[in-house]
Simulated assay, not measured.
Amino acid sequence: MAPLTLALYQPDIPQNAGTMLRTCACLGVSAAIIGPAGFPTSDRDFRRAGMDYLDQVTIDRHASFTAFQAWRAACRQAGNPRRLLLLSTHATASYLDCAYREGDILLVGRESAGAPEEVHAAADLALRIPMRPGIRSLNVAVAAAMVLGEALRQLRVL
Rank of each mutant, 00 (worst) to 15 (best):
P116M: 07
S42V: 01
T5A: 11
G149P: 01
A31I: 10
P133D: 14
G134L: 09
S137I: 08
A144C: 01
R48H: 12
R76S: 09
D124G: 14
S42E: 15
G134D: 11
L21E: 04
R101A: 13
G28Y: 11
E150P: 00
R61Y: 15
R110T: 11
S112R: 14
A49K: 04
T19H: 10
F68R: 02
S137N: 10
A93N: 14
A73C: 00
G35Y: 04
V142G: 07
P130A: 07
A91W: 01
P133S: 14
R83Y: 07
Y53F: 15
A115L: 07
A17V: 06
A122K: 06
I34G: 03
I34F: 00
D52W: 11
F68K: 03
I13A: 04
T23E: 01
V147W: 02
A151C: 10
I135K: 15
R83M: 11
P133Q: 15
Q154W: 13
F68I: 00
L155A: 06
G149W: 00
G28K: 07
L27F: 10
V57P: 00
A63S: 13
Q56W: 14
T66E: 15
R132F: 13
L127W: 02
Q154L: 08
M131S: 13
P36N: 10
A17M: 05
R47F: 12
G38I: 05
G109M: 10
G149H: 11
L87Q: 04
A99F: 06
I34R: 03
G50V: 02
G109F: 09
G103Y: 03
R48K: 14
A17L: 07
L138S: 06
L86M: 08
G35E: 03
R83E: 09
F65Q: 03
V119D: 00
H120F: 13
G109D: 02
G114N: 01
I13F: 10
T58E: 15
G38F: 05
E118I: 15
N16S: 10
Y9F: 15
L107P: 05
R136T: 15
L87D: 03
G38C: 03
A25F: 03
T41F: 11
S112F: 04
